[in-house]
Write a protein that binds this DNA or RNA. Structure first.
Lengths: 215, 215
DNA sequence: CGCTAACTGGAGAAGCCATCTCCGGAAAGC
DNA sequence: GCTTTCCGGAGATGGCTTCTCCAGTTAGCG
């Protein structure tokens, strides 16, 4: 892509850039976009100055990391169209995407409107296109309630956010319970059993507090 | 409560205190606990100094406002125990509480672990006690799925948070759709129709962005 | 009606935090 | 070996919130 380079890129420079991108991936995934570029630099084992030489600002490096992640989701959305059973396809897509989001806080923030807005604006149309088709098929097959709409998927992912945060505290899989609950709400009738037990009452506070204002 | 006052409280002082509490109620409801005490003072039409003379800090005035709101919720939880139909009781409680939260962002933040932690720690045990009874009855009557637990209510309210924010953008009632979806997920089978149409696809971005980072 | 204790208001001090710049020193690679 | 490019991290900068201080005002008693 970058043609006419006056000098070939210095090896240490390229290595540091790669380290920064790796570090950004990890740090954004773990702490979300609240993380500072200084944090990323430290995590990459380079100085702040180096970070700012390679990327004009935090958005720039975030965009690079996000492009990969949102691309993967869009790909998932297309892939599941291959699945015969429309309900299974829908569930598969939701579970894959939720799994990605559970592991990547920055990604969750992007899809639900915090964080990089450009990237968010780009990802939804691509997803909604595939999901609409899925919903039409599922509705036609009677696999989902007739009043459900493709846009509801966006709301479902947004609502899973708090579930992810609760999961971080104690039960890494807790969100699966609530995804199942939401998906069962989309069903025309009769649900299977919920996966993952609910958090114990004694730990409710700890679970609700997960990741918010220390203590 | 305050006995031995050396002097009777000056009328203007009492009036300003009342104004501050009113203003706090409104400002916290609208903007959440991110609002500053200065904001509240301005909204009350008094100076910052006055605010700080009446309350040592933001927590203090927040505690006063919250006590009312959480008390009302605990009361609701007890009240609905009177309703014969256990499912109806559960739905009624959820709708009342959600309505309160939709109108009061500070309240929502408290119940889900942002904001005042003392108040949060106080409210849940009271609610869970009533709700547990409700769930037991509903389960016994076959009105909810057997694997549902009372703690799931906390998760449901947490998950409604994003729904409230989406609602603020365009359709004030949108959250009702998603509360219905969640409650239907608790049902053993067959749902009624969802209230409120989903947000139009063209407005998805606007809806998701609601209330986050201007633009 | 006048006096004084008590209250008011808002400018600004103090602290915090993230973003981004600068430049002496290091080392890559012809 | 020498020049050119890059490194690192201290700290300048700016924004934001919390809370203080005090000159000026006012309530309400005597």
């Amino acid at each position: 892509m970058n043609e006419e380079r006056a000098r070939p890129v210095r090896k240490d420079s390229a290595r540091n850039r790669a380290r920064l991108v790796d570090a950004a991936r990890e740090v954004f995934a773990e702490r979300g976009f609240g993380a500072t570029l200084d944090d990323i630099a430290r995590h990459a084992g380079v100085g702040t100055g180096t970070a700012y030489r390679h990327f004009p600002n935090k958005q720039a490096i975030a965009a690079e990391v996000l492009a990969e992640a949102t691309g993967a989701i869009a790909q998932d959305a297309r892939d599941v169209l291959e699945i015969e059973d429309s309900w299974l396809a829908l569930v598969t897509f939701c579970e894959r995407t939720a799994t990605r989001q559970a592991a990547d806080r920055g990604l969750y923030e992007t899809l639900t409107g915090q964080g990089n807005q450009d990237e968010q604006a780009k990802i939804w149309p691509r997803v909604v296109a595939s999901v609409s088709e899925l919903f039409d098929r599922a509705r036609a097959a009677g696999a989902i309630r007739p009043d459900a709409a493709a846009q509801d998927i966006a709301a479902i992912f947004a609502m899973l956010g708090p579930a992810f945060e609760m999961s971080r505290a104690i039960t890494p899989d807790l969100w699966r319970r609530y995804l199942a609950l939401l998906l069962d709400g989309l069903r025309p009738a009769g649900q299977p059993q919920l996966p993952v037990p609910p958090p114990p009452v004694e730990q409710l506070d700890a679970v609700l507090f997960a990741g918010k204002r220390g203590a």
